[in-house]
Design a protein around this nucleic acid. Sequence first.
DNA 1: AAATATAATTATTTAGAATAACCATATTTG
DNA 2: CAAATATGGTTATTCTAAATAATTATATTT
Lengths: 160, 160
Amino acid sequence: MDNRKPDQTVGEVGSEELSEGTIREFLGYNLKRAYMVLNPATQAALAELDLRIPSFSCLSVILANPGIAPSALAAQLSMERSNIVVILDELETRNLISRAQMKTDRRRYSLTATVRGRRLHDKAVEAIHRAESHLLRGLSADERQLLVRLVNRIETTTTD
Amino acid sequence: MDNRKPDQTVGEVGSEELSEGTIREFLGYNLKRAYMVLNPATQAALAELDLRIPSFSCLSVILANPGIAPSALAAQLSMERSNIVVILDELETRNLISRAQMKTDRRRYSLTATVRGRRLHDKAVEAIHRAESHLLRGLSADERQLLVRLVNRIETTTTD
DNA sequence: AAATATAATTATTTAGAATAACCATATTTG
DNA sequence: CAAATATGGTTATTCTAAATAATTATATTT
């Protein structure tokens, strides 16, 4: 029933002939494996610019939404507010973003990227694109686009 | 240059109109988001059977490769050998697998699943399939298959 | 005016993954 | 053959990232 090779030696499985069994059927497992490949590659690409992935993500969302508040940023990236703070501290110290108290609500801070922040961000975007392109070199442009769309439809389904 | 809405109030970005900016372009970001959705769903499905994801993965690979050694198991799942040990301890305590010293090499242990282990595994497979099917309900069978294939081609590309 | 809620922050805890070190057995090599 | 080196499993430890709790300031509600 479950013996693929009826004559296999029990207790002696050659390392080349290992089967992954059922787990490869699951999307979750495959996603995780892929993520474990993409993530270090992205980290390495950003490390050259002294950025970590969460810092880059924050910078990117701030650039796309000038004036965004930390709590909105956290919600957007599905991060804890408390963890956002230390990232913003670092970005601000490095003069990549600036915090300004809002006049309308003095509890909130308005986040904007500096010119320096934008320049670094743009470099980072290129670096990540290079890294990903390398990993995706086996896929055509159409296939890449299709992949991203399909991946997004998982999440879309969920958020509803 | 960077003002999408020329008349927007700086420091006042409505929460509904947030843009994700460039990050959505990156496969890594999209994969992570999807993974963050799949993972908790899988965890929840397995929790009912008192299994965690790594335990299930080990059980599954052992079932597919009876007699596999812990180090081969670790390599297969890209886990540290030292972390595998505690998982095997738990699986053995619960009588889901058994460890037997190999005659040929007494340093190695031969891992096999028990009947009880197989039964629990099969239940777990069903539970995960149910959970994933729910999350993927917006995709057709063809699309799901295509998604998994494309995801796998990322990793394949890398391992070469 | 008092009570309650929200935003940012700080400090603490927790959980997981990676590292280092240890013992037993195998293999290699002088 | 004996000594040295390597490998497999195990244990203990360290490191890091994420989650929680608690604090202060301001806003809103009653």
